[in-house]
Computed example of a mutant assay.
Amino acid sequence: MTAVTTASGMPGALAASQVADPILEIRDLTVEYGFGENPVRVLDHVNLTLGRGELLGLAGESGCGKSTLAYGATRLLPPPGVIRSGEVIFRGRDRDAYDILELRDKDLRAARWRDFAIVFQGAMNSLNPVHRLGDQIMDAVKAHQPKVKRAEARDRAAYLLDMVGISTDRMKAYPHQLSGGMRQRAMIATALALEPELLIMDEPTTALDVVMQRQILEEIADLRQRLGFSVIFITHDVSLLVEVADRIAIMYAGEIVEQAGAQDAYRRPRHPYTKGLLSSFPPLRGARRELGGIPGSPPDLAALPAGCPFAARCPHAFDRCRVEDPVLGPTAFAATEPTRLVACHLHTDPGVEVPAELALR
């Protein structure tokens, strides 16, 4: 395992120096699907920094690259996914920083579950249907800590299930005997088996009803407070992130188009795409308002148009948007919101007036 000691300056991204005690830095990550002369670029030089103990929400429409970012950063991309460039620097508390993309297979296997773990979207597909729940958690512990006795692994599995609110008598249950919410909790328990410092959650509440979604979110917030791990929470529902996330990053067509504090992104969106996402969900409180939504469909990544990939759907697009792809950077209001980043010409072209709905207020 090679230690990394390079500086963290990243053009077009929130530098690690602006994030208190960074645990993960994704630098210039580019991913393509397909081999040969015409691969499809699905992530285009993405930069993202996660602070220690922070919950970062990653949101966007289906197909925008959220899951690909998570799987690429942890080297879980299935073929024909190929990482073309980038670094993914992990900074553990008790270990030298290292680039996940440069790890040998043996070191990568050791780092998974110990340093970082993933809760996948489909719990029923992630759990083995022919093995009891307790045995699956015990196997995860034994695979990474072979010297642990079986009785100790059993006690650890029981403790983990109790920690996520599942009765220990469910140790002998098969996945099909559990509700959807219990299966998702079991996946969280398994991911926490070795007390990782980073937990990546790929749409863990998508298949659950709203009541169970709320319970899972509260569970995650409570566990993060108790155990102190960092979280990247992936979802297409921005409204889910407002109460639990510290910061939100919005993705579109393989790029991050806005980063901001959760409350700032919700109350004062700067990118038209963020505004459209927020207008697609009804408010839980306050006066009724008409839902806006976003016209059209996401672009074909195999044939991206010139300029900003959102221009064809943007109500505020102008000539420059159709010929030049904007770079993620500070807004015109950087003096009052120094940590917000937006990829939009509305905030960088001095000859264009920022629409009132996207302006400082």
Rank of each mutant, 00 (worst) to 15 (best):
V4S: 11
M10P: 03
S17D: 04
F35H: 14
E37A: 15
P39T: 12
D44T: 11
T49R: 08
S62E: 03
G63Q: 13
C64W: 05
G72W: 01
G86C: 06
V88Q: 02
F90N: 01
R91P: 02
E102V: 08
R104E: 15
L108V: 13
D115Q: 06
F116A: 07
V119L: 00
N125I: 09
N125S: 12
L133N: 05
Q136Y: 02
I137V: 06
V141H: 02
Q145Y: 04
A157E: 00
L161F: 05
L161D: 01
D169T: 12
H176Y: 13
R183E: 00
I188E: 00
I188Q: 00
L194P: 01
E195Q: 11
E197R: 08
I200W: 00
D209G: 15
Q213H: 09
I216Y: 01
I232H: 03
S239D: 03
V242D: 10
I248V: 15
A249E: 02
E255A: 14
Q263E: 07
P282I: 09
R285K: 13
R289T: 10
E290N: 13
G296Y: 02
D300W: 07
D300H: 09
L304H: 07
C308R: 09
C314A: 14
C314Y: 06
A317R: 11
R320S: 13
R320T: 15
P326D: 10
T339F: 05
T348A: 12
P350L: 07
G351P: 06
V352F: 07
E353N: 10
E353T: 12
E353I: 08
P355M: 08
